[in-house]
Design a protein around this nucleic acid. Structure first.
Lengths: 332, 332
DNA sequence: GGCCTTTCGGAGAACGATTTCCCACGCTCT
DNA sequence: AGAGCGTGGGAAATCGTTCTCCGAAAGGCC
């Protein structure tokens, strides 16, 4: 009933724990007959290796910690799901921490995971600057991959979508549709995604139409801000509203509808991320789909490559950018 | 640079590892002067206890596994978040597994978590019947709490919203508004929530209006099904569509809008769960808000109470039902 | 036949913390 | 003064694996 240990299997099969360990782990060739006896005894007793003891000895827990800003951000669940699958496929388990969008809590959770001897960390940093110190410290101790958001150059390996390419897809699409008075509604926050999407918009919009710089309004990544931003910019009648993410875009759509604007005839609205309800909005939101599965797989792969290393900090940090895809739906 | 162990602290402070352990863990009174020296050495060296070694000796990892059907189900992220917070407050870490709505995968993940020596499990079972065996087996080995969904009587402790009460709130509200030709759009699936909400609707609707039994349409918990169900039932012009969850309700709203129906003047639509985009639908969805924070806190509390026990399976299993709240919004 | 090389298996030392004994010392009580 | 007791501290067992030595037996080569 209680726990069956290697010792029990050894006793039952009449050999030493060393031999049993070798048979079950396959670390060294063992005589065919002995191996059979051992395996038979192990299955008969229902032996299950104790991961804790193994972790102590091997100095590896087979565990990866994920610290993210807010699991309730609708973009993250799919990412978590894919990451969990990718890690599971590599035989590793996922410890999850939600840090409530607070850099101090984030640092504390990272430290706790390190205390728990995670083999590696996947981090979606709360803030590009405020998270940097904690991330760098963590990267000195275990392999770290930054996911979706960056944290300054050279701090750790990083996997994210190519925000510039995504924004370019949006602008090209709008240009092809003859929209020439776009407005950007973004986030003032100091996450890398906010900054990159804004910079990409400005670069692209300037190339598109040198007359219309500065048609940019910054708030945060929320539905409420999308509504408010429309109140501010609608009087100047843009023919397209490019939003930095889908939450903003959904808010914008809501308010435009309330104001009686015709989307997309009068004004196009685009989002970014393709969160689950982007396709449910009315009209369905044109947006940039992130390759979530690939992002997660890439993060797991980078982790796997680093995990052989002795010292985690060695070698240049790698940055992977994956190309997104434009989903043209009814809103533009 | 490398790992500082108890032995290092012992050497630095000139006493034995036993004493250091006692000072740091506070398990036995130690001389004031010695304690000071030890503590000073520990902080000076930056000692951090090794959780793996501790877990091996104490036979407790301080870890709780959560296995859920699909993290992408929009109701779950908030629940996960609250659960993570509650467990963290109790000093425990959360291992997450997403089983893709598949009972076989679910059983496998549960077994893997047991192999990893989790102290307890929180399970959101995929299916009331098909998950039962794996859940019962797990409950024999560690404390288990079923969250949100049940798994037959007496299998394990369980925490969920009172679905019957929630449905009663909806029906009372509709009755008060004079709606007397409701229709129910539910899920045929074999989860406890699907069955309970359907049963509660039937009980309440029969009491409300004995003329209208059987006005029930069953599919699954999805937006697509909500759309399809409306196509089937709209010809008979119900004055209310009671949906078993918000996904269905959002689909129903979409299709009703496409059909030119006036919500709520012509027909009311209600949901269940209050997922994030329920308030974003147009018109905003009247729904039943689940007390997510309390559900998670209660689950953590039950786990804490069981965790003292030697044998997990002892004692009658407890079922906690929390009362939901009706959120009246524009859709009805 | 002696020597060298494989091959197979066991004994036992880690891994780092907790915890059970056990001893030494100092005090009190008779 | 000797017995008894409480207190502070150390030595070592323990948790369940993995892995490094070591030794024994067997086979090949000259």
């Amino acid at each position: 009933m209680a726990e069956v240990t290697l010792k029990d299997v050894a006793r039952a099969s009449g050999c030493s724990v060393a031999t049993v360990s070798r048979v079950l782990a396959g670390t060294r060739p063992v005589g065919a007959e002995t191996a059979r006896t051992v395996r038979e005894a192990a299955t008969r007793l229902g032996y299950r290796p104790n991961h804790v003891a193994r972790a102590l000895r091997r100095r590896a827990t087979g565990t990866v910690g994920l610290v993210l800003p807010q699991i309730t951000n609708p973009f993250f669940p799919a990412l978590v799901r894919e990451l969990e699958h990718a890690l599971h496929a590599a035989g590793r388990a996922l410890l999850l921490a939600d840090c409530d969008d607070d850099p101090a809590t984030e640092a504390a959770r990272i430290a706790e995971f390190l205390d728990r001897q995670v083999d590696a960390l996947v981090l979606i940093p709360v803030d590009e600057r405020l998270s940097r110190e904690a991330v760098a410290e963590a990267a000195r101790r275990v392999p770290v991959v930054l996911l979706d958001r960056g944290c300054g150059p050279g701090v750790a390996d990083s996997v994210a979508v190519d925000n510039a390419a995504g924004m370019a897809l949006v602008l090209d699409h709008l240009a092809a549709a003859g929209r020439c008075r776009p407005w950007f509604v973004g986030a003032a926050g100091t996450t890398s995604t906010a900054a990159e999407r804004r910079a990409a918009y400005e670069a692209g919009a300037a190339a598109l139409d040198p007359q219309a710089p500065g048609r940019v309004e910054l708030g945060d990544f929320s539905v409420a801000w999308g509504r408010e931003a429309v109140d501010r910019i609608w009087p100047s009648r843009p023919d397209a509203i490019v939003c930095a993410n889908d939450l903003i875009a959904v808010g914008a759509l809501q308010r435009l509808r309330q104001l009686g604007a015709d989307v997309p005839a009068e004004v196009a609205v685009t989002g970014f991320d393709d969160v689950p309800f982007a396709g449910l909005a009315d009209p369905a939101l044109t947006t940039v789909r992130q390759p979530v599965g690939e992002l997660a797989a890439e993060a797991a792969r980078l982790l796997g490559e680093r995990s052989g290393d002795r010292a985690p900090g060695v070698g240049p940090s790698r940055t992977v950018r994956l190309t997104p895809e434009l989903l043209v739906r009814a809103s533009g």
